[in-house]
Amino acid sequence: MPKKRTKTKRAGGTVAPDQRAAALRRRARPWLLALLACAAQAQAGPCPPAGWSGDSLQALQQAGFRMESAAARDALALGLLECLGEPDPALREDLAAAALAAWMREGVLAPDLLRTLRDRLYRALEQEDRDGLRWPAAARILGEIAGTDRASPWMSPAERAAMVLRASAYLQSVRDYRGFDPVQGWRHGIAHGADWLAQLARNPALDRHQLGRIVEAIGSQAVPAGGYAYVSDEPQRLAEALLQAARRGVRDEAGWSAWFAALAARLGDGDLAWRDAGWLARRHDLQAFLQAVYVGADQARDPATRAVLPGARAALEALP
């Protein structure tokens, strides 16, 4: 005979034991998440990965990152993810990120491994990045992963749609506008986020709605509200991503004109013109972005890309 479930009394009624346990689990969840985060950090691998040193990675770099053993290469690819947050720019950029990018551009990494790399990088973007180094590096490699799917499709439509959302959300979330640091090298969160979106926009599998999402993400950082003046090629990288979406016919000429007019409105209060450092920085960014878009579109031959020209020109002419 099934055992009767007992109930525990409380003021105003009774609570079943399983409900009480669920409530306790909910209250304990912040502590549990903290413990899991600590465990994940404790399990993180070393950098350089076991069996490798800075010297051996430099030797591999000099050999064009070519390795005879595919299994050893794949194991190293996973291990190098731990180097993407390293403060040493030579290790982070010239060795780890460069090796991963080289293998992806050569098309030598299998889809299962690419999925694993992608998912680990997604998790990296969800974790704290105190030094501001890991997130831009992760975005850089995720852009390379997006490029592999464009060259030889392996993602499902759902995976691709999820990446569009993640890439767009990443670019919109960037608030660390630092570029090059003489000690720690490049962060470049805006540029790497733009490159990630540009790779996705080139993919013929994306639909109009997904391309529109990319365009809106680009617009959010073309004129950053905080008033940071771009000095490290960010407007040009954002413009390239926009032109890749434009080439796919995401908007017509009237749609682009309206979009550029709305973007120009982000300059803010006209009474601040030429009297406020934030306004001047926004004007600088908007002008640099519009000029990069205009030059790129003017060199294009396809009507879809050239459809941006009237709106970009009108916005430039209307600049204070």
Rank of each mutant, 00 (worst) to 15 (best):
A90L: 11
Q58C: 01
L57H: 02
L24H: 13
A99E: 07
P89N: 10
L33M: 08
L24P: 00
R29T: 12
R26Y: 10
L121M: 11
M67H: 01
C38L: 15
A34V: 09
P49Q: 04
L121H: 03
L57W: 01
A77C: 14
A110Q: 15
G45D: 05
R66V: 14
R120C: 05
R29H: 09
L95D: 12
P111E: 11
R27H: 06
A96H: 04
P48G: 07
L109C: 08
W52S: 06
E86M: 04
C38P: 00
D88T: 14
L78D: 03
R25K: 15
L35E: 06
D112M: 06
A39L: 14
A70R: 14
G64A: 02
A37S: 13
R26L: 14
L35P: 00
R73T: 06
D55A: 13
R27M: 01
A63N: 06
P87M: 14
Q62Y: 00
A110M: 08
R27V: 05
L60Q: 03
E93I: 10
R118I: 04
R115H: 13
A90H: 11
R105A: 13
E68A: 15
L91F: 08
A90E: 05
L109P: 09
Q62M: 05
L95V: 11
W103T: 12
A50C: 00
S53V: 04
L95T: 13
M67T: 02
A102Q: 15
A71R: 12
T116S: 11
A97M: 06
Q61C: 08
E93H: 12
P30S: 12
A96M: 06
Q41E: 14
G64W: 02
F65R: 02
A63K: 02
P111N: 11
R29I: 01
R115T: 15
A75E: 13
A98L: 06
A42E: 02
L33V: 00
A75N: 08
